[in-house]
Amino acid sequence: MSSDGLLSIGELAERAGTTVKTVRHYSDRGLLPEAGRSSGGHRRYGPEALDRLRLIRSLRTLGLPVPEVERALDRDDALEEVVTGQLRKVGSQLAALRWREASLTLLRDCSAEERAERLRLVGAVPAPPDTAALVRFWRRILPARLPGRVVSTVLDSVVPGLPREPSPGQVLAFARLHALVTDPRLDRVEFRSAPPLPAGTYRPEVLYEELAVAYASASSAQRAGLAPGDGEALDCFVSAYAQASGVPDTPAFRQRLVGLLARSGGPVIQRYWKLAGGLFAPDEPVLGALHHHLSVALQAQVTGRTD
């Protein structure tokens, strides 16, 4: 240290446990301000530069790129923001690695005959995986003029989130689900359904809003250990279709509704829910299963079956 208390670039590097080249690099980028220059033009740094250099090195050791370090040092309240952003990025990277690990385990723990098909399925899924294809699938199915807020609510309910720690079985289910919704043959399938019942004025937004109430009631009953189609949930379910069609809930209406529900959905939707069911969190309601239970309960009520 010189008599004026300033450090040369070599002294600063030695005290910080780094190289002169590194100190010069940070200085040239403006991360490490100089206190002045010697008579020979050499850089000089104040004592505070050592703390700043150690902070820079700590942030770099944690994986922050230099531009993010610059942003963290730019103002006093930026460090927390930068660290939070880095945490989100690391979380995404960890989720991708867990998905990759489960995918590799899936391919390892299967027969040679299964491996070729599974490799094709897993290889067709984006890396890292996302649910964009599932969202496009449902947007194609939902009524064309459904309000945006209703569409968002429906999508939140029917598109499962990706498990953060997937099992090999969940990876396979998602890969098969992705293959289902991206199958080019779906271009020849007409998904948008006609109004649920011919009588009355069909209002799809009412149907989806009221079905959400019915599914919530059925889910509550299920958590309480009751059959999802018991009591209030079934009445809410039927009422959703009646209100959307502008007709009263009568025994005759329920009879017609049984016929409608028997014709709705189709094999693609049934396959979707079979594959998607295991991807929802344990505490999340699976709407496909709830819809099936309510439909079966209505059929039993109308036909008088008790089995």
Rank of each mutant, 00 (worst) to 15 (best):
S2H: 08
D4C: 06
L6D: 09
L6P: 00
L7W: 13
L7T: 07
I9H: 04
G10Y: 06
G10W: 04
A13D: 04
R15K: 06
A16T: 11
A16C: 12
G17Y: 04
T19A: 07
T19M: 07
K21Q: 03
Y26Q: 04
G30Q: 05
A35E: 15
R37N: 03
S38G: 15
G41E: 08
R43Q: 03
E48T: 08
L50I: 05
L50V: 08
R52Q: 13
R54P: 01
L55V: 11
L55F: 11
S58G: 03
L59G: 02
T61G: 01
T61P: 00
L62F: 12
V66A: 05
V66F: 01
A72W: 11
V83C: 06
T84F: 07
T84A: 15
Q86Y: 06
V90N: 00
V90T: 06
L94V: 15
L94A: 12
A95N: 06
A96N: 04
R100W: 10
E101S: 10
A102E: 13
A102I: 13
L104H: 10
L106R: 03
D109P: 00
D109Q: 07
D109F: 04
C110S: 11
E113D: 11
E114G: 00
E114H: 00
R118M: 04
R118L: 12
L119V: 07
R120M: 08
L121C: 02
V122R: 01
A132Y: 01
R136C: 05
R136F: 01
R139S: 03
I141V: 14
L142R: 03
A144F: 00
R149T: 02
T153R: 09
G161S: 09
G161E: 14
E165H: 12
P166K: 00
S167N: 06
P168G: 04
P168K: 01
G169A: 15
V171T: 03
A173K: 00
A173I: 09
L177S: 05
A179S: 11
V181Y: 08
P184K: 07
R185A: 15
R185D: 14
L186M: 11
D187E: 14
F191C: 12
F191S: 07
S193D: 11
S193G: 12
A194M: 15
P195E: 15
P196K: 06
P198H: 07
A199W: 14
G200N: 06
P204K: 09
V206H: 02
V206L: 15
V206K: 02
A212V: 05
A214N: 12
G225S: 09
L226W: 00
A227Y: 10
E232G: 00
D235Q: 08
D235A: 10
V238C: 08
V238E: 01
Y241I: 10
A244Q: 04
S245E: 11
P248A: 02
T250M: 12
F253S: 10
R256P: 03
L260N: 00
A262C: 09
R263I: 13
P267S: 09
V268F: 07
V268S: 01
I269E: 13
W273T: 11
K274R: 08
A276D: 10
G277Y: 02
L279H: 05
L279G: 09
F280S: 03
F280R: 06
D283V: 14
V286H: 08
G288L: 09
L290A: 08
H293D: 11
S295K: 00
S295A: 14
V296R: 04
R305T: 08
R305P: 01
D307M: 01
